[in-house]
Design a protein around this nucleic acid. Structure first.
Lengths: 219, 219
DNA sequence: TTTACTTTGTAACAAATGTTACCCACCACT
DNA sequence: AGTGGTGGGTAACATTTGTTACAAAGTAAA
C-alpha cells in the first residue's frame, strides 16, 4: 500500500537534498527548495508492481521519482499493452500531462520495489517556476524533450517493422537481457520477438555476448 | 518559394488582429500584442505542398499558423510516411518541440495553398510569457494537450489493429471522404484500408452517406 | 461527347505478426 | 538427485497487412 507520511521539517530537508540533484532544480539553492517544499506535498513509498497513478486518474501534482524505478504503460482497451518507458530516479514522472485541461492520465505508472515518489501541488509549482525563470526554462526543456520522445515512439510504431524497431532498441538500450521485457517495450508478443531475433542472428546483424544478451554487431 | 516580407508597422497591427483570436493570447490586449510583435519575427506565405519546416531543421521560433491549412508528416527512413495531424488556422505549429535542447524538428510540416505562418523569436516569446502568466499558463496547457495527443497516437499505433483505428478515426473526424488521405493518416496502404472498409461495410458497422463518405453507424 | 486524369474497389499473392502449444535449459530449493 | 518454477526457443497454423496490377467509376477540360 502507498504510505502517506506527514513529514517534520527536518525530513523535508532530506528531500531537499535528493531533489537538489535533479537538473530541473540545478539552479536552485537549498533555501529556494525549502520554500518549494513548504507547499502542499506528500511522499509515497511503493512496492514492486504497485500502481503509482492509474490511467484515467486526474493528475494535479508534479510527480518526482526520488528513488527506485518505475515504468509507464499504455493500452489495455483490447488486451494489448505496451511499456512506453522505464524510469530511474531522479526523474519527473509524466510531466508532460501536468498542465493539460483534461489532465486525466493517459498512461499508467507502476513502481518497482522501494520506490519513493514525491507529489508537489501543481499550482505551487507553477508559482515557483514564475519566481525562478531558470526552473521554468528547464521545465519547458524537459517537456519538449518528452514531446520528442513521444514523437519518436509514433515514428517507430507507425513507420517501422519489428526488425527496424529491434535495431533501434538495441542502439538505445545497448542490448536485450530479457526477451520478455523487450517484447513489452516493442509492443509485440514474445514468440514474435524470438523469431525475428533468430533471423537477425542468422543474418549476422546481432550476436549474443558473454552474458547471453543480444547485442548489435558493429560494422 | 517562401516569401520573406519585411513589414512596416501598420501591417504588424493587422497581424495583431489575427493573433488576437488565438486562445493562447486571449488574455492579451492589443498593446501587449504590439509589444510582442516588436520582437524579431517574420511572416512567410506558402503554396500547396510547400515545406514550412523540414525534418532535422533546428526550430528557434514559435510558429503561428495565421491562415490556411498545414499538416505534419512523420517517417521517411524506409519509405513509409504518416500524416500525424492536419492543422487549420489559427494554430501553433509544433509548439511542443520549441524548447527542447536538441530542438531539430522530428516532423516535417507542409502547407496548403495561401497559407501564412508567422515566426516569432523564441527568446522574445519566453520573456513575453514571463511577463504574462496567463499566456504562460495557456502555453503549458497547449503543449500538455499535444503530449496527450501524441500519447494517444502511440496507443493507437502500438496497441490497435486497423479496424479499431478506423473506428477511432471515424469518431474523431466524423467520416472518411478521401480514402487515400485517410490511409495516410492511419499509416497503412490504400488497398489495405479499402479492404477493411469493405469488411466493415459488410459487417454493418459503417455505411456510406449521401455524399459517399464512410461514416459510423450509431447504435 | 470525347478525352485524359484521378480516385476507388478488388483480386492474387507475399510478408509480417499473432496464437497456441510444447520442449528444454536454467535455477532455487529440498 | 529430485522437484517445481520461470524464461526462452521454436513449430504449425491463423490473421493481418503489404504489394502489385488492373478494371471500374467519377471528374474536369476540350
Amino acid at each position: 500500500m502507498a504510505v502517506n507520511l506527514s513529514l517534520p521539517d527536518n525530513i523535508d530537508i532530506m528531500n531537499t537534498l535528493d531533489i537538489k540533484n535533479m537538473s530541473l532544480f540545478a539552479s536552485c539553492n537549498e533555501a529556494d527548495l525549502k520554500l518549494l517544499l513548504q507547499a502542499p506535498h506528500k511522499l509515497n513509498v511503493y512496492r514492486k508492481g504497485q500502481v503509482v497513478i492509474e490511467r484515467g486518474t486526474p493528475c494535479l501534482s508534479l510527480m518526482v521519482l526520488l528513488s527506485g524505478k518505475a515504468e509507464s504503460r499504455l493500452g489495455g482497451d483490447e488486451g494489448r499493452e505496451v511499456i512506453v518507458e522505464s524510469f530511474r530516479a531522479p526523474r519527473l514522472l509524466a510531466p508532460i500531462f501536468l498542465f493539460a485541461q483534461d489532465n486525466t492520465m493517459p498512461v499508467e505508472v507502476r513502481a518497482d520495489d522501494g520506490t519513493e515518489v514525491l507529489f508537489i501541488n501543481r499550482e505551487a509549482f507553477f508559482e515557483f517556476m514564475r519566481a525562478h525563470p531558470s526552473v521554468l526554462r528547464a521545465f519547458l526543456g524537459m517537456i519538449s524533450e518528452r514531446g520528442r520522445f513521444l514523437s519518436d515512439k509514433v515514428r517507430s510504431f507507425a513507420t517501422k517493422n519489428l526488425q527496424s524497431r529491434i535495431s533501434e532498441y538495441l542502439e538505445i538500450h545497448g542490448g536485450i537481457s530479457s526477451v520478455a521485457m523487450a517484447a513489452e517495450h516493442l509492443g509485440v508478443k514474445r514468440p514474435s520477438l524470438s523469431r525475428v531475433l533468430a533471423k537477425m542472428l542468422a543474418e549476422g546483424s546481432i550476436k549474443k555476448d558473454n552474458s547471453k544478451r543480444y547485442i548489435l554487431i558493429k560494422k
